[in-house]
Design a protein around this nucleic acid. Structure first.
Lengths: 208, 208
DNA sequence: CCCCCGTTTAATCAAATGATTAACGAAAAT
DNA sequence: ATTTTCGTTAATCATTTGATTAAACGGGGG
């Protein structure tokens, strides 16, 4: 039994197989470039089953998008609203959390950004990111630090920029090949240490 | 004559009309989601003319992508290799240059990143970004500053992150509506001033 | 044993889509 | 004036693509 060879035997239902295949291909190629036949083939199932379980390509995509947003945001809110940590701790926590997440799912940010831009209503139905941020304890601590000298949103952008952008830009920054995958991951690992330091340095520029 | 009403009378050739329409729609929706009929309609020409002038959707796209990459990179190389400026000047120059460019073409980065990822060979034929960076005078000055204490590529990523990411993420960060377009541009304008300061602060963390 | 019902399959459909063709027109060349 | 060339158009083609259908399959309950 080939299945016994893996530690936890995977016995996916047809529905799960479709969803996993769809997640892989949608995130890799985006909604418009994805063919339902490719999903069916990747899942190893008959094309009709896709419509049998999920009604349509659109509906299936919505499931994948909702779960992707959840994956991206889960764990964030509790860090943002932890009353036991100061700003620097939260920044460090976010850095570690997201670099670990994005090393596992490097395509996730570009997927979300592209599909939200293509159809902003996808976001409405799920979460309003900006509100989640601006009403957080994190944001209040940030405001206390910036003291109205500068819009706190600048530092949200800076944080997301130094944290997420390397993954978004990696296809362009890395040479074409795979050779540098390990080096890239090594760089990202280093950034867990540096990002809190850099963020603090940027925030300190206000004291001048 | 309606054409006389605009200052510079626009007398676009059919080929130019197609290219402009294609540029608009490809950048807005991406290659896969773009229909040749939409381009023809936007250009106000017969569908067959698209193939008459550009052979295929693919070939037309390549023209648009090449010009987009050029638009994104033109002006950069001369800043990077200016022998009369120090690192901080170059950073300030890059910030101003790109914020002006991206205020005009906010969709450009996401377009390039998405399409390069979908088909990395598109980059080979044009430029190798990483090499252009690492062989520049800018990079040498950066290396002189970081003094092997940390990989200079970290600061390339930081610079691009704080500079470009806000535009890439704007559909997610801004509420759905248009109401905040002006506010967003105002924030970006402020960043011309702050980015050099933030970058310097991050670079100074090495002296500790 | 057989019937029922959820699942699966192969075949097929209709619409969308990129591309081509043949005819037409008009301006330039002869 | 006639021919040639280039641009343009409407119609059409072949393929792709999302979706549906009717039949077959197969296990559980009666």
């Amino acid at each position: 039994m080939a299945e016994k060879e893996t530690l936890v035997t995977v016995a996916l239902t047809t529905e799960e197989k479709i969803k996993e295949a769809a997640t892989k291909i949608f995130i890799e190629k985006g909604f418009a470039a994805t063919r339902t036949r490719d999903i069916a083939s990747e899942a190893g199932i008959n094309l009709a089953l896709l419509n049998y379980y999920f009604r349509s390509k659109e509906k299936l995509f919505e499931v994948v998008m909702t779960e992707s947003l959840e994956l991206f945001l889960v764990g964030l809110e509790e860090i943002l609203n932890d009353v036991n940590t100061v700003l620097k701790d939260k920044i460090a926590g976010i850095a570690i959390h997201y670099i670990d997440l994005l090393k596992k799912h490097p395509d996730l940010p570009l997927f979300i950004l592209t599909e939200i831009k293509a159809n902003p209503s996808r976001l409405d139905d799920n979460v309003v990111v900006k509100e989640m941020l601006t009403q957080s304890n994190f944001y209040k601590q940030l405001e206390a630090t910036t003291q109205k000298k500068v819009e706190p949103m600048h530092f949200i952008m800076n944080m997301l920029g130094v944290l997420v952008f390397p993954f978004v830009a990696s296809p362009v920054l890395r040479g074409t090949a795979e050779q540098s995958k390990a080096e890239f991951d090594q760089l990202m690992e280093e950034r867990k240490h540096w990002i809190p330091i850099w963020m603090e340095a940027m925030l300190k520029t206000l004291q001048a």
